[in-house]
Design a binder for these strands. Sequence first.
DNA 1: ATGAAAGCGCTAACAA
DNA 2: TTGTTAGCGCTTTCAT
Lengths: 333, 333
Amino acid sequence: MKSTIYDIARLAGVSTATVSKVINNTGRISDQTRERINRIMEDLNYRPNVLASAMKGKSTYQIAFLIPDIDNPIYAQYLKHIEAYGQELGYNIVLCSTDNDFAKETRHITLLRQRRVDGFIIASKFKNDELLKQLVEEGFPIALFAHERPGISIDSVTVDDYMGGYLASKHLHSLGHRKIGVVGEDSISSDERIRGYKFALSEANIPVDNKLIVVGGATLQEAEQSAAVLLDSEDRPSAIFGCNDILAIGVMQAAKARGIRIPEQLSVIGFDDTPLCSIVSPRLSSISLPVRELGKHVTDIIISKIEHSDTVKQRIRLLPELADRDSTAPVNM
Amino acid sequence: MKSTIYDIARLAGVSTATVSKVINNTGRISDQTRERINRIMEDLNYRPNVLASAMKGKSTYQIAFLIPDIDNPIYAQYLKHIEAYGQELGYNIVLCSTDNDFAKETRHITLLRQRRVDGFIIASKFKNDELLKQLVEEGFPIALFAHERPGISIDSVTVDDYMGGYLASKHLHSLGHRKIGVVGEDSISSDERIRGYKFALSEANIPVDNKLIVVGGATLQEAEQSAAVLLDSEDRPSAIFGCNDILAIGVMQAAKARGIRIPEQLSVIGFDDTPLCSIVSPRLSSISLPVRELGKHVTDIIISKIEHSDTVKQRIRLLPELADRDSTAPVNM
DNA sequence: ATGAAAGCGCTAACAA
DNA sequence: TTGTTAGCGCTTTCAT
């Protein structure tokens, strides 16, 4: 049978209070008893029951990570770093898929609170604003990841999507492209990226043509359909900005299906710089995110909220960079 | 403040025992009190504290899922289905990366047991045999996923790797290839797949040439190096079987770097049939796994062990299928 | 420096 | 049908 704090206390000839103190490094204990207790704990391979200590208000050392969709490799990347860094600090990650579904996210949150997870990292475009606000008000450790909610006062760690959209479009423009299409999806990040695109155009004195902006589904297939609208128009763009790599790859496939050569006849650029970029051909230019740093930042924020009930709110926004590869080239007139 | 079972009891004018009984649907309670209690719980939005009930020996409704490496999309796929199905049954997934590291896996397991997770699904090539055996002996709910350990009596859910290797090689052979290379990695699955390959050859009366079998690292880059050995030999194979999609894509890239056209000059086939297959060009032929069913099976096994302390052991082995795409073609002599 | 004891929120055996 | 009560394993005041 697993040994308890009572076993240790009995064997050491002390009270459980004393044992508890050496476990938690609190109160004053003589070096002698401390050592004796430590030895006995080692001998019995004693591990405190986290449940019991959590019941007394201590943490469970669990952080929930909510994502919309594991299929997009960028989430796997996020997960990877958050898990790795959390692990270093003694925290486990409870992973939950929300599928961007209002009911699912709500259910998850209530369930996870019952489980007494210590905090939430939310990387999905959370729909239940009320719940979010409520959690924040209660002071529950929570942080948004990879997407912001301008209206709510809540911690967040994101990449500067606006900047990234600008960078991507600017790159295209610097290659001589003036007719630049966009394939986006329905999300705040995507919107921001498109705002950046528009700014790049306006900076170059190119009027924004809304027919060049197609916002559709997030899957590869849906992206192909969105791209089709652009590609099949009589006066098709010479370059397309996909608001994430999946979308951009959808564009590539649509182009390929139409015999449009990349980058000779069409430049394509993505966003996120996932490992997919080096796997497709031509290799996809993209906007790269400091994934590890993003992960480290949220984890740090959440944990400092958990451990020091830190209350200051912050919005950390890291800057993306251009990852220039083979899918973008000077415009061919 | 969160309400407790005491609040409910007080408001309903009954004892906590009664409330507990309606929560857990045990004992006999009059419809009248049951309804009254239920109403009050609804009104207060009462949620039982899982920690407290877990302390009384009930489950935590958490299953740990150990994987070696999130970078291979097949693990993301597994994760996706296990999470989704677990979610349906009220279980959360605690995700842990082991990086195939003995120390890490050991640390994880002990930590997770402290956390009182209900069971383990292990999808990494687990190194600590002793620990594994010990867990099994203790009757701890545990199942191996996507890889077996012939030596240990333990539940497992896998795909028939041998069969898959056979299928892949047979397909290549049926296209007229006789000089077929293999790029594998250091894992039991990979070994099995190679055994299947050998069987396909022997069935076709082709002698096995060990120089055609290269076992190396698991990353894309390492796969390229493995492929190089094959591709740069004076008498290079006309087809290569990559023991998973990443490896196969490494082969494709190595071929591309050498100006070897696929499938005209080299046929390539992978294993796992990840979404990557449709993204590379030419689209990669592969061996497809019934991923959803695999996930459902392990989850079911683990949960039945948890809930009915089911003790019969089973090895479920599902059959893979050929997914024929554009990277394989008749040999060109 | 150490211990006694109350209690976290729940369950279950036993009584009534 | 319902209630009393003794824990689960730990933390934490308050004494000593």
